[in-house]
Amino acid sequence: MSESRSEGEPRRLAEEARDRVRFEEEALELADQMYRVARRLVGSKEEAEDLVQDAYARAFRSWRSFRPGTNLRAWLFRILTNLNIDRGRREQRAPDTQPIEEGDYYLYNRLEENGAGGDMDEVVERLSQDSIVHALSAVPHNFRDVIVLVDIGDFSYQDAAQILDIPVGTVMSRLHRGRRLLKQELAESTVGEHA
């Protein structure tokens, strides 16, 4: 019996090595998306690079806990978002008093009041890339995380819920509220202080 076990051992090791190689290759194919999301979760390029690198190091160490056939992308991004939380980024607490939430037309109305109009692309182009990046970073993290995953990372509500370990309904409400807060930030940075 022991002889047949030892004969099976090399085969088992070879299969495990093959599975691990496949796992690592599939995980690395998602690196661009990981960086894109990480870059908007943290404040600098350096932090984003460190975060992605740490996430991959952890993923490669714990690859056996991934169940083949399940959602690798969600599994990997969950590591990324958990690491970001572990790093204390959550020190940025949500303010005690929540900002007043304007409606979805608020940004357009403010831009129109301030002379923009006519061609829609021209109105949008009044917003600079920097103003968008800055406005996004000003959105409280619990709303921003959802915007980054769904609107920038292309995750479904269900995947974002799995990654952040929150109910789908919470993803939807944070997404809707977060987009409104983003537009308020954009209005304030583009056409002046909140009226």
């Binding site: 960086y35 829609m120 949008v124």
Partner: peptide
């Protein structure tokens, strides 16, 4: 007008917020 603006804005936010991995 406001719906069309929102569609453009979403695309623009996505483009503006996307950075290529070094």
């Amino acid at each position: 007008k406001r719906y069309r603006f929102e569609e453009s804005l979403r695309r623009y936010v996505r483009e503006a917020a996307t950075e290529t991995m070094p």
